[in-house]
Simulated assay, not measured.
Amino acid sequence: MSAVADDVILRVEDLTIRYEKGRSIWGTPRYGQVVHGVSFSVKRGETFGLVGESGSGKSTIGKAVLRQIPVLSGSITFEGQTITDWPEGKTPVTYRRAVQVVFQNPRLSLNARMLARDTVGEAVRFHLGLQGRELDERVARLFDDVGLPRHLGDRYPDELSGGQQQRVAIARALACDPRLVICDEAVSALDVSTQAQVIGLLRRLQEERGLSYVFISHDLGVVRNLCHHVGVLQHGRFTDLGSVESVFERPRDDYTRALLDAIPKFPGKVAA
């Protein structure tokens, strides 16, 4: 894929985010800056990895892309639209359909009182307005797409394995045919073998649907398996940024080298 402007689905430029940390004795707010002037882009059909230790700012960036938190300065552009220009609390439904999220812990992100098929069906009904047989057929196809036997739709989340729960969460995210999916530590709560299966699933869905991912993780081995480009964050700033090959083979910063040295061996590519 050529590196032309139309290839870029998401562009983040000079993004700065701060949180209110409390108030002074005079009642004025005190702020702590979490993300400091971060810039990167995500190409269509590719995966950009945000990697770093806890507190590095990677999930904060994901929340900003999802418009869950305000930004102090900088811009986020999706398919040519600057979403940071939209008023707070006024996110168009079209954007919420186009950009979806898969969270870290599927057990917490799924409603324990809803059957798996109803969890996915609720998203289909909300975004696409389908009912009856059309709804049932759409849910069944989504189960097929994520490799879940259809009969598991009649189970509650606690009756499913961790990997099956995450597949339900992925099916729910795909319900409205998004073009960008934020994967926030989407495999870190799974055991190693299940991680490999879910990584393979994400790669297959990307190839079949042309999906773009922002993949947030602290696991450099997983990032190398799945991502095309990567940004390594420390204290809200990139220490390294570039293609996976260049960052992993020729890291520029001592912090990145230390993270890489902590991994004895990188796993090979996971089959889809």
Rank of each mutant, 00 (worst) to 15 (best):
C183L: 15
Q165M: 06
Q206A: 10
N111L: 10
A196C: 13
E88A: 11
Q100W: 06
T91N: 12
L148A: 10
L115H: 10
T119S: 09
L220V: 08
L201I: 12
G132F: 05
L108G: 11
A140T: 14
E159V: 11
H218W: 08
G200K: 14
D85W: 06
L135M: 05
R113L: 07
V168D: 01
V146P: 10
V222N: 07
V181D: 07
V124Q: 11
R150G: 06
L110N: 08
T84Q: 09
Q100D: 11
D145K: 01
T77Q: 01
G221Y: 05
R133G: 02
S75V: 12
D118V: 07
G147A: 07
G89N: 08
L110R: 00
A175F: 04
D118G: 02
D158E: 09
R107Y: 15
T194Q: 02
A98R: 10
F103N: 00
G147S: 02
L220N: 03
E208F: 04
G121K: 00
S161K: 11
E208I: 11
T91C: 13
A173E: 05
A169E: 12
D177P: 01
D144Y: 02
T82K: 07
Q195N: 12
P87R: 09
P87F: 14
S161G: 13
Q131H: 14
T82P: 04
R203D: 15
Q166V: 05
L128E: 15
L201V: 12
V99H: 04
G147F: 01
D154E: 14
E137F: 00
S212A: 15
L160W: 08
D191C: 07
F143R: 03
L220C: 10
V99Y: 13
I182M: 13
Q195K: 08
A189I: 05
Q166N: 09
A171D: 09
I199S: 07
Q165L: 03
Q165F: 01
P92L: 12
Q100V: 00
N111Q: 04
R96C: 02
H151G: 00
L135Q: 04
R133N: 14
D177H: 10
A186N: 03
L110K: 01
P157I: 06
R138Q: 14
R179D: 15
P149K: 10
D144T: 02
S217I: 07
V192E: 15
V222I: 12
T77D: 05
R203F: 03
G221P: 02
L190W: 02
A98N: 08
I170N: 03
P92M: 13
